[in-house]
Amino acid sequence: MERKIRVLVAKPGLDGHDRGAKVIARALRDAGMEVIYTGLRQTPEQIVSAAIQEDVDVVALSILSGAHNHLFPRVVELLKERGADDVLVFGGGVIPEEDIPFLKSKGIAEIFGPGTPTSKTIEFIRANVKRPLH
């Protein structure tokens, strides 16, 4: 039997727009995944601690405030520091296309912009989870 994929959905930074984060959380649940939702205003440190304790396969970050270039790389960095580099990290929100190469170079696996269907995100997770599913 395929094991459950566990995903941490977190909102780093200070913006309070969680519509996207909540929609994606529901969609992932409906796709059979276990979603840990940590809510607003999470520091990279809080996100990474939670990811490790929850032993998630994926960290999904949503941000609309524009602080992504600062906060996303920090999450990847801290995961590495704590030996958890088998966690897939991706992001979504209002993120200009020109920032994407930089974010990818920092270890963010993918950036999903406004209008991305949830089905695409689900496929992405299934195809890219780093730990074996069986």
Partner: peptide, 22 residues
């Protein structure tokens, strides 16, 4: 900006990366 809206000065740790953004 968000730090102002949440009552943090620009030098607060949570303001990091957010100052003047939105």
């Amino acid at each position: 900006d968000l730090p102002t809206q949440i009552g943090y000065d620009s030098d607060h740790p949570l303001s990091e990366g957010e100052v003047g953004k939105v």
